[in-house]
């Protein structure tokens, strides 16, 4: 089982799905806040989180050059 979030950058990193939305000034900050948020909504133990970067936020003209920005797989011990 895995928690899948969409990742984007709009002045700060934002990881979200229909329930969770977390913002961080850096990816470390994002992971810290995500841990706190997961705890708040009732998660416990080791949670594997896949953050898929939202490629539609990359300018349209650039997307033809490369199909993908990056995904992050993070294991968070809540």
């Amino acid at each position: 089982m895995m928690l899948i979030l969409t990742l984007r950058f709009d002045r700060e990193w934002i990881a979200e799905n229909s329930v969770i939305s977390v913002k961080g000034s850096s990816l470390e900050d994002l992971d810290r806040k995500l841990k706190y948020e997961l705890k708040k909504v009732g998660y416990s133990g080791k949670i594997e989180v896949l953050m898929r970067f939202d490629y539609s936020t990359i300018p349209r003209w650039m997307r033809q050059f490369h199909p993908h920005y990056f995904n992050r797989r993070v294991v968070i011990d809540v």
């Binding site: 990816l27 199909p67 993908h68 990056f70 797989r73 993070v74 294991v75």
Partner: peptide
């Protein structure tokens, strides 16, 4: 950058 808990996926090689 040493981010604890983050893993790099080999599948990225195929994506790219």
């Amino acid at each position: 950058e040493r981010r604890p808990g983050e893993r790099v996926e080999k599948l990225e090689i195929w994506y790219r």
